[in-house]
Design a binder for these strands. Structure first.
Lengths: 195, 195
DNA sequence: TTGATAACTGAACACTTGTTCAAATCCAAC
DNA sequence: GTTGGATTTGAACAAGTGTTCAGTTATCAA
């Protein structure tokens, strides 16, 4: 036999994805060339095509991996009993998870329009699944009578926008720790749903 | 004398800005070429340079005009007495204004990274001015004792993210009218600030 | 050391990019 | 009609685009 399959590709492959993630987040998908990514990796542009079918797939794979991570992490999150405890778990989880990977979050929200139609539909489905998790909690809270929000779908969208918004202003080493931010936001979430 | 200055440019100029706004919003600044804009206007690419110094200025002018509009419209908005009334006025104004011009809003939030450093600083200053308006209301509400939010700066960011988020899901002719949406969001805003 | 194959280069392809500018066209005023 | 400036064309420029691929190099099993 020849050398073990992918003895180098196991290094270069992740490097390509990391470089693409950082560059797409900084300059935008359309503004980044394959040659820029290759330069960041330390390789010629042609070599990238050993690791991705084309530029579009590179973007899609990053977004899909991010959404898969998100859904898996939420599934593994301890949630507590009762809708209110679960809402708190969701709020804290959302902030923590998103603050930990700002580049991926940025791309997932900003580059949707650069996806092909099929790829867009796939990512959109994952996003809806995630929104559905929050919606289900709010629905349960309504049933338990601990939430008075009049429109669950709107509340879902409002809360996600509010929580994701943390990423636009939070800077590491700033005035507040992530926990302090999560505390304050949880307070606002609770107030917003009338609990 | 020759013909009146700008007898045609007064038509083509706005056409260029309208076409650029729509195309930038749909595909993103970096993904739209000057030739695409020109085609939309019904003119050759070279003619665009009678109406803009370069592509960057075209983007900047659109964003600046949008922010100027926003600040002027809020200044002209009837606000009522007391912090709570003003907060309600702000929430309703923000939703209404943003829903009326989704393309400009989209560009103003998504294309910041495509601005040159100076242009970015200028737009960022306008944005901060607008945020300052809400922050001042919350500060006043704190003084009046009608608001219990523990951190005014965070509350400002949270509310703006939540309100602007309406643009991501609202579709004309959907389940709810703009007024109904504004009613529900005002409820959530009030709850979030603890009023 | 050899031989096989994974990994990569570097050049080429056809096409698009933002921008400039001499020349053509347009049209209100005389 | 003619005039003269406003307006637009159309071609050109140099540089950059995503992608392909024959050929070169690196790496490891035998």
């Amino acid at each position: 036999m020849a050398r073990k399959t992918g003895s180098h590709s196991e290094i270069t492959g992740p490097k390509v994805r990391r470089a693409a993630l950082a560059l797409f987040a900084q300059h935008g998908f359309a503004a980044v060339s394959m040659r820029q990514i290759a330069a960041e990796v330390g390789v010629q542009a042609g070599a990238l095509y050993l690791y991705t079918k084309d530029k579009q797939s590179l973007l899609y794979d990053l977004m899909q991996a991010h959404m898969d991570d998100l859904l898996a992490a939420w599934k593994a999150e301890p949630k507590g009993d009762g809708a209110l405890a679960q809402l708190e778990a969701f709020a804290r989880f959302h902030i923590r998870f998103h603050l930990e990977r700002p580049d991926a979050v940025f791309i997932a929200y900003m580059e949707l329009r650069n996806l092909s139609d099929e790829n867009f539909a796939a990512i959109e489905a994952l996003r809806r699944t995630y929104e559905g998790e929050l919606e289900a909690i709010l629905h349960a809270g309504h049933g338990e009578g601990v939430i008075t929000a009049p429109d669950i779908r709107l509340t879902t969208m409002a809360l996600i926008a509010m929580l994701t918004g943390v990423n636009t202003w939070y800077r590491e080493g700033g005035r507040l720790s992530r926990e302090a931010v999560a505390d304050i936001y949880w307070d606002m979430v609770r107030g917003a749903v009338g609990a």
